[in-house]
Design a protein around this nucleic acid. Structure first.
Lengths: 107, 107
DNA sequence: ACATTATATAGACGATTGTCAATATGTCAA
DNA sequence: TTGACATATTGACAATCGTCTATATAATGT
């Protein structure tokens, strides 16, 4: 489960928080981390998040904008619940009917 | 979030799978892992899961029985959803009304 | 008290991970 | 084409992590 490893790091969680509901360029993210993390490190974390499909990317000119993939995160939580909390996961997953999500096919 | 780090390891996930819905002694877990992991390693993983409150423990004679804490896992998934997928977490969390869960107070 | 069984802890070691500085790649403007 | 800017990649290094063997602790029975 790439998802679990992706969310396991605190810096990554902080980045995810900043990318929630908004599109930010890499440098925007670096700035919001208050200079505590270098640009290459942020790029590195974004790559890991991308491999877990936890961020969406949009290129615009020379900058690249990222945002949190909430749909994917919701699917992963659903999988987690159905796998490890079957006694609590009876209710339908909290996914909007009109939402298109990719396959849940990480190992 | 101790939760995220706890579920990030594959061996731990496998242990969680075995502890889902059943109580197992440490040696039971070791056996179900097919001898791939030593007893001290299993104890180590169980300790990490316990620190994240993801397992419940019951002592009986000289053996200690563990089971997955599904309620806790459900709470953590709820926190995750509300934090990182607020646009999808509108629905009520999938927690039974009569369920008693501890405070969600990991960092 | 001693041996036996079940689990936990300590210490060591290799593998993985997070980080940075340096550099490469890519994009646009002059 | 050259320079400036934005991001990605490389290589190195320290820190963390997963694993093992050896040993300690705890509980039970003889």
């Amino acid at each position: 489960m790439l998802f679990a490893k992706a969310i396991a790091d605190e810096t990554r969680q902080e980045i995810m928080g900043h990318l929630c509901c908004v599109w930010l360029s890499v440098n925007d993210v670096v700035e919001r981390l208050g200079g505590r993390v270098s640009q290459p490190t942020v790029s590195h974390h974004l790559k890991i998040l991308q491999e877990a499909d936890l961020v969406l990317v949009r290129q615009e000119g020379r900058q690249r904008f990222y945002t949190l993939n909430q749909a994917r995160l919701t699917v992963c939580c659903g999988t987690l619940l159905r796998t490890f909390a079957p006694d609590y996961a009876g209710e339908a997953p909290a996914i909007r009917p009109d939402t298109i999500v990719g396959p849940d096919a990480d190992s």
